[in-house]
């Protein structure tokens, strides 16, 4: 009888309605958002490298940024883009921004507006140029290698790029002192090829967690100087900036869900193993 009850419990657990698990996940996300726990965030060397590079460049250095993502990757890439953009504005570097994904420009425009609220003297045309989106993918990358002005005669806001002060000393990818790309797909491969190998510009990457494993070989091969991977990477960058924002606020939820999933996977494996042993013993007894 006791054995029967045990078996039922094991089977019940393994056949748990998925909606109960969804509810637990929702609670694990929501509760830390309302009552933050403040779990520690350890800085990884690959995020530190990106931060150090931007931090140690002399004031007024040229930085190229490509935001190759759309709203589907916004929760991961937007916080890190904002943190990096804030860093660039704080260090008074010159910035040129392109977008290779058609649904991306609005996110960059929104990010620029938010950073401008913190740094009102950071001006379009003088300190940065938002080149916007241009169709062509790799062809655009080749184009910005030759000339920003020829590839983007007008910026995102419709102003002629040729007359902008920021363009005077920064009109092509090769003139950049550093490049940072935010990637939700494969466009980064081509930025690495043309940035690192053709124009000899050091490149760093901010990538979604899904594509992060695909970019780590570039880090190992020193084709990337650093990687900001997923929401965790964004939170690390915010901590380095000493400006906790969206990513840091989300990290407790992230950790809680990971803990929940870890426990669920371990328990499910133990219970499945125990059930298999029970069934084998029952079969032996029947023989």
């Amino acid at each position: 009888m006791e054995n029967e009850a045990k078996r039922n419990f094991l089977e019940l657990f393994l056949l748990l309605d998925r909606r109960i698990i969804y509810t637990l996940v929702a609670l694990a996300v929501a509760i830390p958002l309302i009552w933050p726990i403040g779990l520690p965030i350890r800085i990884t060397p690959e995020v530190q490298s990106v931060f150090d590079k931007i931090e140690n460049l002399p004031e007024g250095s040229n930085i190229m940024m490509s935001a190759d993502f759309d709203p589907a990757s916004q929760p991961e890439l937007y916080p890190m883009m904002k943190a990096v953009m804030r860093h660039i504005a704080r260090k008074k570097h010159k910035l040129a921004i392109t977008v290779l994904w058609p649904n991306g420009p609005n996110l960059v425009a929104q990010c620029i507006e938010e950073v401008k609220e913190e740094y009102p003297n950071w001006r379009s045309g003088d300190d940065f140029v938002f080149l916007g989106y241009q169709v062509g993918g790799t062809i655009v990358i080749i184009g910005v290698g030759n000339s920003f002005v020829e590839t983007f005669p007008k910026d995102y806001y419709g102003n002629a790029t040729s007359t902008m002060p920021v363009i005077k000393n920064f009109n092509r990818l090769g003139q950049a002192d550093y490049m940072i790309m935010f990637e939700a797909g494969n466009s980064g491969d081509w930025w690495i090829v043309y940035g690192t190998e053709v124009h000899d510009v050091e490149v760093g990457g901010g990538v979604t967690a899904v594509v992060a494993p695909q970019y780590y070989p570039y880090l190992q091969a020193k084709q990337l100087n650093g990687i900001i991977g997923g929401l965790k990477g964004a939170a690390e960058y915010e901590m380095l900036m000493e400006h906790p924002d969206m990513a840091v606020a989300a990290m407790d939820s992230q950790s809680m869900v990971h803990a929940l999933l870890f426990v669920a996977i371990v328990l499910a494996n133990i219970f499945a193993f125990a059930l298999a042993i029970q069934k084998r013993n029952a079969a032996r007894r029947e023989k």
Partner: peptide, 22 residues
């Protein structure tokens, strides 16, 4: 490793939506 990162990415998307809703 890829699966682990994928889970992290999906959870991040859920957190983004929950932040928006809340």
């Amino acid at each position: 490793a890829t699966f682990g990162y994928t889970i992290m990415a999906r959870v991040s998307l859920l957190i983004g939506r929950m932040q928006f809703l809340m």
